[in-house]
Amino acid sequence: MSLLTIDNINKAFGGVKAINNVSFELPRGQLLALLGPNGAGKSTCFNMLNGQLKPDSGSIKLEGVELVGRHPRQIWNEGVGRTFQISATFGSLTVLENLQMVLLSRDKKLFRLWTPAASYYKKEALVLLDQVGMADQADRACSVLAYGDVKRVELAMALAHDPKLLLMDEPTAGMAPKERNQLVMLVKKMVIDRNLSVLFTEHSMDVVFEHADRMIVFARGELIADGSADDIRNDPKVREVYFGSGKSFEAA
């Protein structure tokens, strides 16, 4: 059975159908890229998966558990981690404390009022930071980090509660080309080591074609292609969406 099953979801904003009858599945241990030009419905789809938007109809199931109508918080509890297009971390906390926050939240210990937080999960947090190569900056405030480093901290946070599914909205936006490859290779390693499933949107095509196991393409709210790198490269519909049909340049 697939980890994530999306069945006929729809979402309209006023008269605009942002997502129109979209269905797809994501098996365990797969790195799935979600592609499409601006306005294709990628972000809308993402926001429905993590509970920030509610689909008008359809169902989203994680291992058979319905996610539609759930709060982002509850979806996280079901084992879905996520990173944002513009990284969101806690700027006034240190890198280590950012990780400790996630672990405290995982074990429902946030309302403890007495024992200092510094004594909780220090080792575990450092192990997680080590995986993304941020252990040596554990004591710095998140607000003073370079943007690429913030992205890595965010990834470590998203992975801290050992999710089954990781949602990444443009994970390499704003990063230098070298850093991009490192980050995606890191994610790819998690996919293999932990049998993690990842769904991500991305504008950098070399990242996508080099690392993604499979890709799906959206256009005008509809899913128009689904397959391997070669399938997508040669798909006439995808070519039309990205390059046009060529008719507009024909002599009248």
Partner: peptide, 28 residues
């Protein structure tokens, strides 16, 4: 002061910094 250094203190500072992120790691 003790509360501010405890997990709850961490949680209120985190909620202030980014409610988006706090929400995405299961913080109410």
């Amino acid at each position: 002061r003790r509360i501010l250094f405890a997990p709850f203190g961490l949680a209120i500072r985190a909620a202030r910094d980014s409610d988006l992120r706090a929400d995405a790691i299961g913080v109410d």
